Measured scan of single mutants.
Amino acid sequence: MTYKLILNGKTLKGETTTEAVDAATAEKVFKQYANDNGVDGEWTYDDATKTFTVTE
Score class of each variant (00 low, 15 high):
1 M>H: 15
1 M>N: 14
2 T>I: 15
2 T>H: 08
2 T>C: 13
2 T>A: 06
3 Y>V: 02
4 K>L: 07
4 K>E: 03
4 K>N: 06
4 K>R: 13
4 K>I: 14
4 K>M: 08
4 K>Y: 15
5 L>Q: 00
5 L>G: 01
5 L>S: 00
5 L>H: 00
6 I>V: 09
6 I>Q: 05
6 I>C: 05
6 I>T: 04
7 L>M: 12
7 L>E: 01
7 L>K: 01
7 L>A: 04
7 L>F: 10
7 L>N: 02
8 N>E: 08
8 N>F: 13
8 N>Q: 10
8 N>Y: 12
9 G>W: 05
9 G>F: 13
9 G>N: 04
9 G>H: 08
9 G>M: 12
10 K>Q: 11
10 K>H: 12
10 K>P: 10
10 K>W: 10
10 K>E: 08
10 K>F: 11
11 T>N: 15
11 T>S: 14
11 T>C: 14
11 T>I: 12
11 T>A: 12
11 T>Q: 10
12 L>N: 08
12 L>G: 08
12 L>Q: 12
12 L>M: 14
12 L>D: 05
13 K>N: 07
13 K>T: 10
13 K>C: 11
13 K>P: 05
13 K>E: 06
14 G>P: 04
14 G>D: 08
14 G>E: 10
14 G>K: 12
15 E>M: 13
15 E>G: 07
15 E>N: 08
15 E>T: 10
15 E>H: 11
16 T>C: 12
16 T>R: 11
16 T>Y: 15
16 T>K: 11
17 T>A: 08
17 T>S: 11
17 T>E: 09
17 T>Q: 11
17 T>L: 09
18 T>S: 05
18 T>M: 11
18 T>G: 03
18 T>H: 06
19 E>A: 08
19 E>S: 12
19 E>V: 15
19 E>L: 13
19 E>C: 13
20 A>F: 04
20 A>K: 03
20 A>V: 05
20 A>H: 03
20 A>M: 03
20 A>W: 02
21 V>F: 13
22 D>G: 04
22 D>R: 03
23 A>P: 12
23 A>T: 07
24 A>R: 10
25 T>E: 15
25 T>V: 08
26 A>W: 01
26 A>S: 02
27 E>A: 12
27 E>Q: 10
27 E>T: 04
28 K>M: 11
28 K>E: 11
28 K>Q: 12
28 K>P: 03
28 K>N: 08
28 K>H: 09
28 K>F: 09
28 K>S: 09
28 K>V: 11
28 K>A: 13
29 V>H: 12
29 V>A: 12
29 V>I: 13
30 F>Y: 02
30 F>L: 05
30 F>N: 00
30 F>W: 02
30 F>P: 00
31 K>N: 04
31 K>Y: 06
31 K>E: 04
31 K>M: 08
31 K>P: 00
31 K>S: 04
32 Q>C: 06
32 Q>N: 08
32 Q>G: 06
33 Y>E: 02
33 Y>D: 01
34 A>P: 00
34 A>G: 03
34 A>D: 00
34 A>C: 11
34 A>I: 06
34 A>S: 05
35 N>Q: 15
35 N>G: 09
35 N>K: 15
36 D>E: 12
36 D>L: 12
36 D>I: 11
36 D>F: 08
36 D>G: 06
36 D>V: 10
37 N>V: 15
37 N>T: 07
37 N>C: 11
38 G>Y: 06
38 G>W: 05
39 V>L: 10
39 V>Y: 07
39 V>C: 05
40 D>L: 13
40 D>S: 15
40 D>G: 08
41 G>I: 02
41 G>H: 02
42 E>I: 14
42 E>S: 10
42 E>N: 10
43 W>M: 05
43 W>H: 01
43 W>K: 00
43 W>T: 01
44 T>V: 11
44 T>R: 09
45 Y>G: 00
45 Y>F: 08
45 Y>Q: 01
45 Y>R: 02
46 D>A: 04
46 D>T: 05
46 D>L: 04
46 D>C: 09
47 D>P: 14
47 D>C: 07
47 D>Q: 08
47 D>W: 09
48 A>C: 08
48 A>H: 10
49 T>N: 07
49 T>M: 06
49 T>I: 07
49 T>Y: 05
49 T>C: 05
49 T>S: 09
49 T>A: 08
50 K>P: 00
50 K>H: 14
51 T>I: 06
51 T>E: 04
51 T>M: 04
51 T>P: 00
52 F>A: 00
52 F>K: 00
52 F>Q: 00
52 F>E: 00
53 T>W: 09
54 V>C: 09
54 V>M: 05
54 V>E: 01
55 T>H: 07
55 T>M: 06
56 E>M: 07
56 E>A: 07
56 E>S: 08
